[in-house]
Design a protein around this nucleic acid. Structure first.
Lengths: 348, 348
DNA sequence: ACCATTCTTGGGAGCGCTCCCAAGCGTACG
DNA sequence: CGTACGCTTGGGAGCGCTCCCAAGAATGGT
């Protein structure tokens, strides 16, 4: 039996583990990768050697030999990071982390700026070989998703770009969330319900508007288009929209804002106009962020299960990767919608 | 001249680039890695081939051959992620991302739970070969930093564990921030100034308390220990501390809370006790988070340059890595302190 | 014109692992 | 008791790159 080569400083290699266990490199590899084609006895010997030597496989070598990386990338549009930031980002990450916890997968964080950068990014992602990509907060004309699809890189998108999203996606139920919010306002006796929308090139914002419309129509309320004020998810935008609304329909008695931050802007304007919340005007937001909890009065808001979205996206992606490598070219693209929840506070 | 081997599907390799440029593999490698030992003409030829073929180096191969990874890990304690979350996490990430933007370095995100997990983590980090580690929000008895130091892995810590931090660190000036806050209260005529502290096993919380003490002493105010209420950075903790304070010193006319979230808790209790802010009691927080901006009244708070901390940490780490690999065993450990800024709003 | 340097260059060796083939053994069946 | 097949096993080949050595080309000095 050849003595295990003693190496100067470094970490133990597979070869050393094999020598220690008195088996061949191939066998040791099989044990470490959980192949069933190993006898129980051999397996034990190798496992003992691994434990004694504190062996941890070298990722780079694995990646090179196995043509995979055991890593996925989370691509975050840098520009939107700030305003989508509130709870969103860290919650998504926590969800992803949770789903990855007992996996060997690593999480690569990639901040992509403008479209040009994103185009290059696709190159890098495939060349640097991540096994899959998680796409967060993508707008309608983002080139990255299609690029990834062309390159055959598994990807999952949070939300969607449009109704006919081609990539696997995980979204929250924006439509139902909005509808529940407006229904709630109606049940509280409000009749002149306005909405402040987000950027309508974001599919979710569109769906929230649809939900609003649906609820208004179902209740037989006046579907006055002047009750709909477009904004951009920003606090200032929310304020501006609220001013427009007050001008067009001073008799408004409730507002559904498509984000908490916009609701905060609206609240400010309502206050300045001398209206009390909720006595004169009820207000509801979306996201159930820290802003909602700390607003005065505390803001009723639609909670999205962000962390769970992160978890689900990751699971879907891992599945996608597994399918891909096992040749299961199942063409079904999961399109998952998670339920939202209305958190009623004092503003409504 | 040998024709470039045509490969079936995959991405071009260095070998192919070399063939295309009519040079050897070694030369092509030199060009790509910016070695000066190449003639201008050769360089151009290789660069042209790279462009034509759309060559992107294979990271795994590089890592394996070069014994480095061009990746750093950001280690986030999972448990604290939530309460440190507000702006902290995403801002740090943005800073790190910015500093990494025109580097080849990748960012690995690692969520570590309890101490046991963190101990294992050190193993993995060295075995999986990241070139360096960014440590965020570390508490005093975290084993990870020392482990990394022993393993000789470059690391930078945000904040510190104690006054005699051994690792390179980047911190915000908690002491001066607190002092400025209290000075501001004093300049507004407040005389009975209380403080609600964070967990004092966090060095930063300790420093904020020190700053408070210093300012109180410098102004010749009564340094009554009953004006100091320890809490834990949570909203509920802040509320509890505020209740204690009111009981012990009902005449308190100002409160410096060591975080916005705790200030929010305190505000609630102050309201319930019938005190007006700022008329009866002035309130200041720390962090300048969204909570502060949206509180009613808007909360005066001490802003920390979080994003810049992320950027600076990263730069320090990259430098550390560069030193290490060039054999510059300079033993100087940078210990950077970034200035804070008092953002005055209506609560004071 | 010749030799010593310096600059470029090509390509072998090897990083640690996975994949896969072929060999060794054991077993069951005819 | 012989043959065929299945399970284990060892180890060669090769993933794409960096490192480094030695060879060739170019330069300069005398």
């Amino acid at each position: 039996m050849a003595a295990a080569r003693v190496r100067s400083g470094g970490r133990p290699t597979l070869e050393e583990v094999a020598a220690r266990a008195g088996v061949g490199r191939g066998t040791a590899s099989r044990v470490i990768n959980g192949s069933p084609r190993v006898s129980a006895q051999t397996r034990e010997a190798v496992e003992a050697a691994v434990a004694e030597l504190g062996y941890v496989p070298n990722r780079a070598a694995r990646a090179l030999a196995g043509n995979r990386t055991d890593a996925i990338a989370l691509v975050v549009p840098e520009s939107e990071t700030r305003f989508f930031a509130e709870p969103y980002f860290s919650d998504i990450v926590r969800g992803v982390g949770a789903a990855l916890a007992d996996t060997e997968m690593q999480l690569l964080l990639t901040l992509a700026g403008n479209d040009r950068e994103r185009r290059r990014l696709a190159q890098y992602l495939t060349a640097h070989r991540v096994d899959g990509v998680l796409l967060v907060s993508v707008h309608a004309d983002d080139p990255l998703p299609d690029l990834l699809e062309q390159l055959g890189m598994p990807a999952v998108i949070s939300g969607r770009r449009h109704a006919a999203e081609t990539l696997p996606s995980v979204d929250s139920d924006n439509f139902e969330g909005a509808r529940a919010a407006v229904d709630h306002l109606i049940s509280r006796g409000r009749r002149t319900i306005a909405t402040i929308t987000g950027r309508l090139d974001v599919y979710g914002a569109q769906r929230r508007l649809d939900g609003y419309r649906k609820a208004v129509a179902a209740a037989g309320l006046d579907p006055d288009e002047r009750l709909i004020a477009p904004a951009d998810f920003s606090e200032e935008g929310g304020a501006r929209a609220m001013r427009e609304l007050l001008e067009r329909r001073p008799d408004v008695d409730a507002v559904f804002a498509a984000s908490d931050v916009m609701a905060a802007g609206a609240r400010q304007v309502l206050r300045e106009s001398g209206r009390r919340i909720p006595d004169d005007v009820a207000l509801i937001g979306f996201d159930d962020s820290a802003v909602a909890r700390h607003m005065d009065p505390p803001l009723t808001s639609v909670r999205q299960p962000i962390e769970e979205m992160g978890r689900t996206m990751t699971r879907v992606l891992l599945q996608e990767i597994a399918n891909r490598s096992s040749g299961d070219a199942t063409q079904e693209r999961p399109r998952i919608v998670l339920p939202t929840e209305l958190v009623v506070r004092e503003s409504s």
